[in-house]
Design a protein around this nucleic acid. Structure first.
Length: 259
DNA sequence: ATGGTCGCAAGGCGA
């Protein structure tokens, strides 16, 4: 089963590029981030016609996450526990009913810039809530994945120019510590379980010819529970998508799970 | 490099 994460940076702008990638890759399940649309504005018919069930958790203009799935989904929930006042659409969960049911969490972690400041405080608070949710899921002992745009560069090797990010919310020690704390609860970074070394990125800024210069960062991650990690067959980054017509600034990252 | 490029949505914010 191929499960992917893809920050599409606006569903309306990706109305051609997203189906093109789905048709060429045929993933079973995709978590989307930054749909930048309310639920009613999401072009669900387009994806249903391609064989996907569509579950959205949208918001006007900003944020917004969704799950596309060729397999049945059960127990879909929206929103991350821990702050009832939080109205930003950044979290969706569902159980994917394949050979073996897998709990799937799709997330769009806050960017946090500028740091320090209220946006950075929100990022760190959101990561604390994520940590609590992961602890709870681990206690259930069911296989699960937390995948999406984490807006965190885990290590220097995950940036082409780490020195350019030292004061950025994506790379500040507090951000990296918070992510490391979550991973060390017992999760596996699927990409790093299979691929070592520098030069592997999932985002290239639209500005300053970042793509042409390969000035990228790896911030889109698939974290697997121990039971899900045991099912890991393969991983990949669909880098070529960034060179297509009207691309997102992120590319899809995927895992093949024996599930 | 107090810009540079996008998306949403219709001016300015977010990334």
């Amino acid at each position: 089963m191929i499960i992917a994460t893809f920050n599409i940076n606006g569903i309306k702008a990706r109305i051609e590029a997203l189906p093109r990638w789905l048709e060429s890759t045929k993933p079973d399940v995709v978590c989307l981030q930054e749909i930048k649309s309310v639920d009613e504005g999401f072009p669900r018919q387009l994806f249903e016609d391609l064989g996907y069930r569509v579950e959205t958790h949208g918001q006007k203009s900003f944020n917004g996450v969704a799950i596309l799935s060729r397999l049945p989904l059960e127990d879909v929930t929206r929103g991350l526990d821990g702050d009832p006042a939080d109205e930003q659409a950044r979290w969706i969960e569902a159980t994917v009913m394949g050979k073996r049911p897998v709990r799937l969490c799709g997330l769009y972690l806050p960017n946090g810039n500028p740091a320090p400041g209220p946006k950075y405080d929100y990022k760190l608070a959101w990561m604390a809530r994520l940590e609590a949710r992961v602890k709870s899921l681990l206690a259930s002992e069911e296989p699960f994945l937390c995948i999406g745009d984490y807006n965190v560069i885990p290590q220097a090797e995950d940036a082409a120019r780490p020195e350019a990010w030292v004061t950025d919310a994506l790379y500040l020690p507090q951000s990296r510590d918070a992510l490391r704390r979550i991973v060390h609860l017992g999760l596996t970074d699927a990409f790093r379980a299979r691929v070592q070394g520098p030069g592997h990125y999932s985002f290239w800024d639209y500005q300053a010819n970042s793509w042409e210069r390969n000035n990228g960062i790896r911030i889109d991650h698939l974290l697997l529970s121990p039971q899900a990690a045991d099912m890991l067959v393969d991983v990949g980054i669909d880098k070529d998508v960034r060179a297509g017509d009207k691309p997102s600034d992120h590319v899809p990252v995927w895992v093949n799970l024996d599930a």
